[in-house]
């Protein structure tokens, strides 16, 4: 009886040793135990719980609502615009001279149609890193918005969204393609 109790204590100590030394405080995908240190010593059978599988497959999230799914897919597609895009220099967001006549037309339209709501999309070429380009696209859209407001457009009807480098209008990898892809795009809601 005494021997049995001692055995239990040793097993408990063993488990602690294993836990400390193995550093297995974290949940493991695959359970493991140490095996016998070789011939001469019979298997120690480290008395942990019967080995269980904790691994789970990665599953996509729950079904999203139909409307959300449609809007999400639509975000990947080029939306029609009544206005031409304006373009930007590499890594820049200032309004170029060639963009000003376009912005004047946009401003004239919005002033004549005060109920209109417009989304200004900011886009970048593929060069550089995508996270910075997301911020750069944002600033291009904001730059176009500020210019429209300076022309007398009420800011309440204007919103901006950046697509970074995700939606090139020209899929090429040349200077000419990049120049087209550094743009702001005007979408009426």
């Amino acid at each position: 009886m005494k021997g049995l109790a001692g055995g239990k204590w040793v097993l408990a100590a063993l488990s602690i040793v294993l836990l400390l030394a193995g550093g297995c405080a974290k949940k493991e995908l695959v359970k493991s135990t140490d095996t016998a240190p070789g011939a001469g010593i019979s298997a120690p059978a480290p008395v942990e719980k019967p080995e269980q599988i904790v691994s789970e497959p990665l599953k996509p999230g729950p079904q999203t609502a139909m409307a959300e799914a449609a809007a999400g897919v639509a975000a990947t597609q080029e939306k029609p615009s009544p206005f031409p895009d304006i373009h930007f220099d590499y890594d820049k967001s200032f309004i170029r001279e060639d963009a000003k006549p376009v912005l004047q037309k946009v401003a004239d339209f919005l002033k004549k149609n005060p109920g209109a709501a417009m989304i200004i999309e900011g886009h970048c070429d593929e060069r550089g890193t995508s996270e910075y380009n997301m911020a750069l696209g944002e600033r291009r859209a904001e730059s176009a918005k500020s210019y429209l407001v300076s022309l007398g457009v009420k800011s309440g009807g204007l919103s901006t969204v950046s697509f970074g480098e995700e939606k090139p209008i020209d899929p090429g990898h040349t200077e000419a393609a990049w120049a087209k892809n550094r743009r702001a795009h005007f979408v009426l809601r």
């Binding site: 021997g3 040793v10 040793v17 294993l18 140490d34 240190p37 010593i41 120690p44």
Partner: peptide, 18 residues
């Protein structure tokens, strides 16, 4: 019994501190 288990712990420690 206890001595045997002690040897076992030692072996495991050695195993874990290679």
């Amino acid at each position: 019994m206890i001595r045997y288990a002690g040897a076992l712990i030692l072996s495991l420690l050695l195993l874990l501190l290679p």
